[in-house]
Amino acid sequence: MIRLPVICYSFLVARYSNEYQETSNEQPATSNETMTQVTDDIIIRTVARILIPFIQLYALYVIMHGHHSPGGGFQGGVILGASFILYLITHGLEEAKIRMSEVKAGLFSSFGLLIYSGIGLLCLILGSNYLDYGKLSAILRVIPAQARSLGILGVEIGVGIAVMAVMFSIFFDISTGGILPEDEEGGQEGR
């Protein structure tokens, strides 16, 4: 059963990579601008600057209130990643690197996965099933219902961090083509 999606995926990849190569052969890039440059539009820059803290706080709200209202780790992580993407495309690569770089994104994605699997394994060590938070009450010293709530909160924080980092690094890779400017320079110097 698993063969069908794999075939479809490889077919799509082959097709789109061929198309991309054809178009790139026909029309070389007209300008040196990239997605990760500072915009010269002052409206977009100012509005993004004012909006970004509120977007980030809203993302954290969606993550933290996942067990009361719609949303949760994945949705909050998407919004948090979108805020960083907005900063990247409005303020440019140089400034965005101070807040979130690709190395940091990789670290954060691993860290989020560590939180998620760590809580799951903790339940396993305490003698119940994987991600069965009821047993966490022994550590947290609360009743099992509250322990379940706190455990879900922790797992959602982990999922949110991982989703944010992975979304950011996917956008980063697509927009820079996987090649950073200083990497190019360093490589040329090395050769």
């Binding site: 600057r49 004012i50 970004i52 803290p53 980030q56 706080l57 954290l60 709200y61 933290m64 807040r99």
Partner: peptide
């Protein structure tokens, strides 16, 4: 906690 985190991340964005 969340407000402190966001304020630490972007304290220079709101009042530039």
């Amino acid at each position: 906690i969340c407000s402190l985190l966001v304020a630490y991340l972007s304290y220079d964005l709101l009042f530039f």
